[in-house]
């Protein structure tokens, strides 16, 4: 049985950069708990089964080191919430306490 608490949800939300509300902590802890109970069934599977990460039987797919056109800078910045001097403008990177 899993046992997802409000503080577990808060921790996951912090890792995933989700500023969840207090109400969400309640709702999600119940829902995540139920989901993890269902998916936890995979723990029955024996250790000696090898994992599968890719289903295509491909190896060594490589690209030749040949330049291709880049985007025009205006196109690269077109979707930016904010830009300045040809660069993406973002809020200060460190918080007040750092």
């Amino acid at each position: 049985m899993s046992d997802i608490t409000r503080s577990d949800v808060a921790h996951l939300a912090r890792l995933a950069r989700l500023a969840v509300t207090d109400d969400e902590l309640d709702v999600f802890s119940g829902q995540l708990d139920a989901i993890l109970d269902t998916v936890g069934r995979v723990s029955d599977i024996p250790d000696d089964v090898p994992p599968t990460s890719h289903v295509v039987p491909l190896t060594n797919v490589l690209r030749p080191d040949e330049p291709a056109p880049s985007l025009p800078r205006e196109a690269a910045l077109a979707g930016a919430p904010d830009a300045e001097e040809g660069r993406f403008r973002v809020p200060r990177i460190l918080g007040e306490s750092q």
Partner: peptide, 15 residues
């Protein structure tokens, strides 16, 4: 709004 860091803006936006 000038008061939040990137980390906070990321979290508020994703929320």
């Amino acid at each position: 709004d000038g008061t939040h860091s990137t980390d906070e803006v990321m979290s508020l936006t994703r929320e």
